[in-house]
């Protein structure tokens, strides 16, 4: 049943993200050492790794917030590191990014946070259409009643949801989640995992979920990829990856459950 449902969502013939031989270093610190990864249309890939292993660097390269030293990053058929100006902006509008720190504009209300990307990028939209889009995005994350509140008045979980709603407002084809459950209690973590799952189904997005939390990876990822020492140790379905005698994978699994 689960397999059948997955087949309906994922289109294995269409790659939305294709990364080949990606290298990135900061001064003398080599973070990514030859990464290869494909994400198919409608698929959620969870990237697991310890803190500082370069997981966030990977998704920041995908949206061109960072430049790779070497390698090719194709997103929705475009080579990201060769795009500039309007072309890059157009691609970025097709990608939603939920930040680890939520990155909500703290001088703006929830409504203004969600309206901002719309008013800046879709000038043809009228007030009524913007209002509908904002309400729809808030409805998707279950926080319609918080529309007039300021980010500082929200709980950690609510801020995460608003961050996701803001990323969803442009109706992206790809969602990138940076540590969506970091710093949240187990109940809120489960709610966020369910939300990521709902977003995949409702908005038909393909996603990369950066996390160090095995539960989140298992709940949200159709596949998981383990990043160790700047390289993917293993990429595949959760059970295939962790049903493995590799010492580093075992260490990672045990580390997660001890901490």
């Amino acid at each position: 049943m689960e397999e059948q449902k997955e087949k309906n969502i994922i289109n294995q013939d269409e790659k939305v993200i294709s990364i080949k031989g990606l290298y990135k270093s900061f001064e003398e610190l080599e973070v990514l050492k030859g990464i290869d990864l494909d994400v198919f249309k409608g698929e959620n890939v969870a990237v697991l790794g310890k803190s500082g292993s370069g997981k966030s660097v990977l998704i920041k390269i995908i949206v061109a917030l960072l430049k790779p030293d070497k390698g090719e990053v194709m997103v929705l058929g475009k080579q990201v590191n060769k795009l500039l100006g309007k072309e890059l902006d157009d691609l970025r509008l097709r990608i939603g990014f939920a930040f680890q720190s939520n990155a909500l504009y703290d001088s703006m209300s929830v409504r203004q946070n969600l309206e901002f990307p719309l008013t800046m990028n879709k000038k043809s939209l009228g007030k009524k259409e913007i209002q509908i889009a904002v309400e729809e995005a808030l409805d998707a994350v279950g926080l319609k009643d918080k529309i007039n509140e300021m980010p500082a008045e929200l709980s950690g979980g609510q801020r995460k949801r608003i961050g996701i709603a803001r990323a969803l407002i442009m109706k992206p084809e790809i969602m990138l989640y940076d540590e969506p459950t970091a710093g949240l209690d187990p109940v809120t973590c489960r709610e966020i995992n369910e939300l990521i799952d709902e977003v995949q189904k409702k908005y038909k997005t393909s996603s990369i979920i950066i996390t160090h939390d095995l539960t989140c990876a298992k709940a949200t990822g159709n596949r998981v990829a383990i990043l160790v020492d700047g390289k993917f140790l293993k990429v595949g379905k959760f059970n295939e990856v962790f049903d493995n005698d590799d010492k580093q994978i075992k260490d990672f699994y045990n580390y997660n459950f001890i901490h």
Binding site: K60, L65, D89, R92, S101, A103, Y105, D106, F116, P117
Partner: peptide, 25 residues
């Protein structure tokens, strides 16, 4: 302080990924 705070809380990067030029805005 305001812009510094926006930088360290990734608000400036959030503008960039929303296709808004933070330098201009």
């Amino acid at each position: 302080a305001e812009l510094g705070s926006m930088k360290v809380t990734e608000q400036i990067e959030a503008m960039e990924v929303s296709a808004i030029n933070p330098f201009k805005y």
